[in-house]
């Protein structure tokens, strides 16, 4: 069967191999991981006819340059508004492109978005941990980081017609304001701090990686809750340290934390939220748990229609 080999010529920090992630392992300290923007990954795989949870290369704002050393291969680039250069042609992300031997594929920060994924028409050969290629950044377990010099082997490499991938308008950004559900420890925060959370603008700081992003804004200091017993947390949790600084936990989050969680982002906001860059301004609004369930069901239905599964 045809094989294609890519070499990483340059890669910014936080570029890694991901797949759908390992759900169900939080009881062992293992977060799900997987792509920061799960919608982008699903649409990239769909464009290539790949299985939905297959492995991808996730690219950070630091960008990546790959070179096809061997074979021919089509790839789908989706997520954010990144600049894509393939075999000397300039495109945007949200494209299926075909690479010939010797071609370079550069994916670099563009007008918007923070994470982009490259899916391969074929089967990426990568090390799995607990059955998944998804890389857990802190430990490096899984397929691992993408760094200069690394080779990526794709078996059963296929060629597809070049095409644009439609980017749904709802995949570009989170809601404005971003929807969250208060709690589970909002009791440690007086009404004044809930009012600040839901009223004030916050900015994403530069302290941003796959584990989470620290926010800048008014203090949300909890009332003497510095020593709550460590408890399980979810992706999207807004935890507040004793100094009043909030952090939104992302794909590679710690599975437990001893800081109180003032709120948790609704799941359908997480992919769009991940596409915000450091210094972006966010506002938050509270929805009920029932409204949150309705939101994720609507989003799942919209994605299923895009994937032709509705």
């Amino acid at each position: 069967m045809p094989r294609a080999v890519l070499r990483v010529l340059e890669a910014g920090p936080h570029c890694s191999l991901q797949d759908a992630g390992r759900a169900g392992m939080m009881r062992f300290g293992v977060p799900v991981s997987g792509p920061m923007d799960r919608v982008a990954m699903a649409l990239a795989h769909h464009a290539l006819g790949n299985p939905p949870g297959a492995a991808v290369a996730e690219v950070s704002l630091g960008g990546i340059v790959l070179q096809l050393e061997e074979g021919r291969l089509s790839v789908a680039v989706a997520g954010g508004g990144f600049m894509v250069e393939a075999g000397g042609r300039r495109l945007g992300s949200w494209s299926v492109v075909t690479l010939q031997e010797g071609d370079r594929l550069a994916v670099r920060r563009g007008p918007w978005g923070a994470w982009c994924c490259i899916a391969f028409a074929g089967v990426l050969q990568a090390e799995a941990w607990l059955g998944h290629v998804a890389t857990h950044a802190l430990s490096g377990l899984g397929g691992g980081a993408l760094t200069a010099g690394r080779r990526l082997v794709i078996e059963d490499a296929r060629l597809l017609p070049e095409a644009a991938i439609p980017c749904p308008v709802w995949a570009r950004a989170p809601g404005d304001p971003v929807a969250l559900v208060l709690g589970p420890q909002e009791r440690f925060f007086g009404a004044d701090r809930i009012e600040v959370l839901l009223g004030a603008p916050f900015r994403l700081s530069d302290a941003y990686d796959r584990m989470g992003v620290r926010l800048r804004g008014p203090s949300l200091a909890p009332d003497g809750a510095l020593a709550i017993p460590s408890e399980p947390v979810l992706r999207g949790a807004v935890q507040v340290a004793g100094d009043g600084v909030a952090t939104v936990l992302m794909a590679d989050h710690q599975t437990t934390g001893g800081y109180p969680k003032i709120a948790t982002l609704v799941g359908s906001e997480l992919d769009g939220f991940a596409q915000l860059r450091p210094h972006a301004v966010v506002r938050f609004r509270a929805v009920t748990p029932e409204q949150a369930v309705a939101m994720v069901r609507l989003r799942a239905a919209a994605l299923a229609r895009r994937l032709g599964r509705a």
Binding site: A23, G24, M25, M26, R27, P229, S230, E231, P232, L234, T255, T256, G267, A292, V293, V296, R297, A300
Partner: peptide, 17 residues
Amino acid sequence: VEVVPAMVNLLVVFDPL
């Protein structure tokens, strides 16, 4: 989907679909 036990509490994660 999963259950995560901790010191004084436990998180029951479910599929909202």
